[in-house]
Structure formats: structure tokens, C-alpha cells
Amino acid sequence: MELDLLCRRLAIHRFAELELPGLLFLNVMPLTIVERDFREGLTLGFIRESGLPPERVVIELTEHVPIHDYDLMRQAVAHYRDMGFQVALDDLGAGHSSLRHWSELRPDFVKLDRHFISGIDQDPAKREFLRSILDVARSLDCQLIAEGVETAAEHLCLWELDRGLALLQGFYFARPSRQPPLELNMLLPATTHLKKPSWPHCTLYLAPNRRYHG
């Protein structure tokens, strides 16, 4: 618990120190946010120390253990929303992260596990699955984040599949760094040499105004 709090505090202060734009996603185990110390507002205190508004912080629930008490978890999620935080569900489709979690907790963001993104340019089944998940996300007013984008072909496939899928994460854009890049366009590999994918009605191009979640 103490190590978790220390990591959380360091991440918050580093984010503020670098004056990074966008949102800070804090990885939190679901069982942690119902712990007494977490609910007493330590994280909110760290944020106030750093000068960040709570609206720029997303509590990202990582799923490595199952959730047994959904009533308690819903109360905890509501508690943090009342303080201004947003909530994300990590790794949908992997481990214990399930559609029930999505239905019960109604997060603001859902991260789709990289399994469904890896090789999506070569897998029609994954593309159909992603279309279905995007429909659910829109109906629940939830933003979907595609994890694990590692190639130009995957990136372009996602862009062509649905222009509304605006949040992407993966090594194709940038790797973890103590000094994250503020501009990603110059880091992206050139795409003009790529061959057109095998499925029909696909145009290849790079979207310079795309928003990226790193």
C-alpha cells in the first residue's frame, strides 16, 4: 500500500513538473480504491500539492484480480467522480476485465486490450469485434482507447476503420520515457511506402491532427 501511494505521488508530481498537456492516467488496483487510506483523500491531496485540477486525472482500474463486491466498487467510483476524477477500465478483454465491469461501473474510458489490436490489419474478425465495441462505447457515452498499436499498418487500419476512434496507445507513437515528447507527428515513421491492405475500400494516409493517448 505504501509503495503504491509513493508511486502515485511521484507520477502526479512528475506530470505536473513537466507541464504535460492532456490527462494523467493513474493505474490503480480495484481493491485499492476501497481501502480506507485511499478513500480518505490522499490522492486528492497529492494532486492539490502539485497544482493539478482533479479533472485532469483519470483513475485507471487495472484488472489482475476479480471484483467481487460491485456495490462497494460502484460507491468508490461515485466517490471519486464527486471529487472531479474520471474513471477508466484497463485491458478490456484480458484477465478479469470483463463486459460486466463495463456495465456495472460505467467508466468514462475503456482501454481495449492489445490482443484485439495486434495484427488487426490482417484479421477481419478483430476488425468486426472492434466495430461492435465502438458501437457499445458510443451508446454508453464512453471513450474507447486502443492499446498496443505498434505498426504503421495497424495505425492506418484503425483510422480507416473508424475515424471516431481518436485515442490510441502504443510503441508506434512513443515508448515510456522520463521526458515524453510533446509532438508526436515528427516521430511517426513515413507511411507513403506502405502497400494498400488486402481488404477493399481502404485509403492510406496519416492523420496529422489525431489525438494520442500515451
Rank of each mutant, 00 (worst) to 15 (best):
M1A: 13
M1L: 12
M1I: 01
E2K: 14
L6H: 09
R9N: 06
L10N: 06
L10F: 00
A11N: 14
H13S: 07
H13L: 09
L18P: 03
E19L: 04
L20E: 06
L20S: 03
P21M: 10
G22E: 03
M29Y: 06
P30Y: 02
P30T: 02
P30K: 06
V34T: 12
E35F: 00
R36Y: 08
D37T: 04
D37W: 03
E40A: 06
T43Q: 12
G45L: 07
F46D: 15
I47M: 12
R48K: 15
E49K: 10
E49N: 10
G51D: 04
P53N: 14
E55I: 00
E55S: 15
V57M: 08
V58Y: 02
E60L: 06
E60A: 08
E60M: 10
E60D: 13
L61W: 08
L61M: 14
E63T: 01
E63M: 06
H68W: 02
D69L: 05
D71Y: 08
Q75V: 00
V77T: 05
V77F: 07
H79M: 13
Y80N: 09
G84R: 08
F85K: 11
V87C: 04
L89A: 04
L92P: 02
S97D: 06
S98R: 15
S98N: 11
L99H: 02
R100Y: 11
H101C: 13
S103E: 15
S103N: 11
P107D: 07
D108E: 14
F109I: 00
F109A: 05
L112C: 04
D113C: 04
H115V: 00
F116I: 01
F116G: 05
I117F: 03
G119N: 10
D121L: 03
D123Q: 07
P124I: 01
P124V: 01
P124F: 03
E128Y: 05
L130A: 04
I133Q: 09
L134E: 09
D135G: 03
D135V: 02
D135I: 01
A137G: 05
L140D: 06
C142H: 09
I145G: 11
E147K: 12
E147A: 08
E147L: 07
E147N: 09
E150W: 06
A152C: 09
A152Y: 09
A153Y: 01
E154C: 09
L156C: 13
C157E: 14
W159S: 12
R163H: 13
G164C: 06
L165S: 13
L168V: 00
Q169G: 08
Y172L: 13
F173C: 12
R175H: 05
R175Q: 11
P176N: 12
S177T: 08
Q179C: 12
P181N: 11
L182R: 15
E183Q: 15
L184P: 02
L184I: 07
L184R: 05
L187Y: 12
P189T: 03
P189G: 06
T192C: 07
K195W: 00
K195H: 09
W199A: 13
H201S: 14
L204C: 11
Y205P: 00
L206S: 15
L206I: 02
P208C: 08
R210H: 12
H213C: 15
G214C: 10
G214D: 08
G214Q: 13
